[in-house]
């Protein structure tokens, strides 16, 4: 049995109420879901909280999945909605604050991306990504970090492919600017 069929089998068993199979599905998706949640919430505790909410929602709604589309896309759609509900509620309560977690000091360079090679530089990208507006950031995360296609993202966020493309384009432009700002370069 290949991996796709394995997953299908797990989904079927989870649909019949088998928690163990559901846990196997959680194991497959937990890092991706947590990673997306962290990008959105910018906070580890909240990221875990909202990831749990997404999986609990999946457990409640998995019976509604009819195998007419890809399970991953269906699940990411559900996750996306859970995350946005959470963020909306949070915004209503209070304005979020962004903690300064590290101080970076890098030399200015003729090409800022020459330096972006090591672990610390990757952290810089993550940091710059946090400054990209939420709607644009999510599309960049889905495409560039999670490897989804335009079509998949379009289904997940329920927007036309053209919107996906324009958000991706604007998101990357801002990411590039933010990275340039962080690195103190004028070459952006």
């Amino acid at each position: 049995m290949n991996r796709k069929e394995d997953k299908k089998e797990l989904v079927k068993r989870a649909q019949s109420g088998d928690w163990k199979s559901f846990e196997e599905l959680v194991d497959i998706y937990k890092d991706k879901v947590y990673s997306i949640a962290l990008t959105l919430t910018k906070d580890r505790i909240e990221a875990e909280e909202v990831s749990h909410l997404a999986f609990l929602k999946l457990w409640r709604k998995i019976g509604k999945f009819k195998f007419k589309s890809s399970f991953s896309t269906w699940f990411y759609r559900l996750t996306h909605n859970t995350f946005y509900d959470y963020v909306r509620k949070k915004k209503r309560k209070k304005k979020s604050t962004v903690a300064i977690d590290k101080f970076y000091s890098l030399k200015s360079n003729s090409n800022p991306y020459d330096s972006v090679k090591d672990e610390e530089a990757r952290e810089l990208i993550k940091k710059a990504l946090k400054e990209v507006p939420e709607k644009l950031r999510m599309v960049v995360v889905y495409y560039d970090l999670q490897g989804m296609s335009y079509k998949e993202i379009s289904k997940v966020i329920r927007r036309p492919m053209g919107t996906v493309k324009s958000r991706l384009s604007r998101g990357r432009e801002i990411l590039k600017q933010e990275l340039g700002n962080i690195m103190g370069s004028q070459h952006v």
């Binding site: 890092d31 991706k32 947590y34 990673s35 962290l38 990221a47 991306y113 972006v116 090679k117 530089a121 990757r122 990208i125 993550k126 990504l129 960049v140 560039d144 970090l145 999670q146 990411l175």
Partner: peptide, 9 residues
């Protein structure tokens, strides 16, 4: 570089 950024565990 962005595509090489590892996801969080």
């Amino acid at each position: 570089d962005v595509r090489e950024v590892p996801g969080s565990k």
